[in-house]
Nucleic acid binder design. Sequence first.
DNA 1: TGGAAAATGCTTGTATACAATTCCGAGGGA
DNA 2: TCCCTCGGAATTGTATACAAGCATTTTCCA
Lengths: 240, 240
Amino acid sequence: MNDTGQFHLLAGLATGRETRSDDAIYQALWEAIVEHRLSPGARLPEDALAGAFGVSRTMIRRVLQRLALEQLVTLRAHRGAQITSPTPSEARDVFRARRLLEGALLAEVVTRLTPEDLKALTTIADQEHHASREQAIRLSARFHTRLMAVAGNASLSEALSQLISRTSLIIAVYGRHRAGCPCEHPALIDLLATGELAAIQHWMQQHLADIEASLDFTASGDALPDFEHLFGHHREPSAS
Amino acid sequence: MNDTGQFHLLAGLATGRETRSDDAIYQALWEAIVEHRLSPGARLPEDALAGAFGVSRTMIRRVLQRLALEQLVTLRAHRGAQITSPTPSEARDVFRARRLLEGALLAEVVTRLTPEDLKALTTIADQEHHASREQAIRLSARFHTRLMAVAGNASLSEALSQLISRTSLIIAVYGRHRAGCPCEHPALIDLLATGELAAIQHWMQQHLADIEASLDFTASGDALPDFEHLFGHHREPSAS
DNA sequence: TGGAAAATGCTTGTATACAATTCCGAGGGA
DNA sequence: TCCCTCGGAATTGTATACAAGCATTTTCCA
């Protein structure tokens, strides 16, 4: 019962001991990461995950490898997996990449946007508004992903989705005010309805710049962050 | 002696039976795919690969999963892996994505280009010139990858690398004249030395447009392509 | 008491065994 | 002759056993 903290956390990912498919496990871990329930630096022991999801380490390893290729998890030989802590340099790269991609894709998005798309985006923005802050982070990512999917370029959408997920990690490490991101997405929906490309692109550039400006790169950086602080109080012996 | 063709092909990937690391296996398969020695539609039985590389199916499955996430290999449940045959729609997406990304990155490339970069690019272009056509395909991909790495954005470089690899698959399926791509890369190097961004960007757009224009989307598409034709003549018994 | 070396335990890496599914062909009937 | 059904062979999916490496602690000596 040494790493009880982690175990409690991971146990919360699965409702009990029912077996899940690897896609479902990936989904659960992805959401936990994007919603900041698993913070950068958190270790992900294969046994604990296998127990929590009621499967063997085989599937866990497959999921971890996928998350590692998407840069959400860092895999070190013989040292296991942990949630990636993006470096300041990587963070800047991600934002530059997002500004470039989202700005360029918006041109295509505006020409192809249908009323159904607008409705779907409105639904997500509404959920975002009513959700807890944790879920709001995930829904915000979903909003951007859904918006850029309108452009109809699967190759770029997938690359962009990964960048959006990684943004959540960046905010987890360098975000200053947890209140942040009052999520002005409804304003963007209004703009989209007008179809004025220049204004929309300008809004998006500003949106991304605002998020980046709210970060504080002077803090720690790469070292294992607030893991102990977060889960230390779970460390009751609970001998048996 | 059912799939002897495949077996001979796969055996050619490894020199004998020595054990290799998973990275080396990935590299070997990647090169075989990009160099068109493994054509779209070719099946990749785990046992055959495991035997060829002298490892167990565990590592093979890991490598195949990675290739699948990069869209070079298609994995279907209970049906195994085969080299991906991009659809015409996917092909167009890839080219649009490349035009967008490479065009945008060139601006950064031009400002950061060092003499060392130019020298490295020249070396690759030279090798490309002297290599066999198979290797030239791989070196051409390497040239583009190396060029875009100059921009110094790892996130975008990695996404772009995947698009470049997939381009090789697209050419394998839809390429008309195998002579194609006299590879005008030396001309680009001359242009890069001048530092005239507009001309460089225009050249690149034209380069990509030329490649795309040389494709023929009216042909087959997804069905297993010329696999039998390629490897049928290898089918001697070679007993003992 | 402080530090270094060794040993032990825990985690990961790889291979293999077994179960599940698909594919292909043979056989029978209409 | 065509089609449907029913095995059998081959291949993939999952779990588990065992080997290997790292981390921590314990112990011993200065």
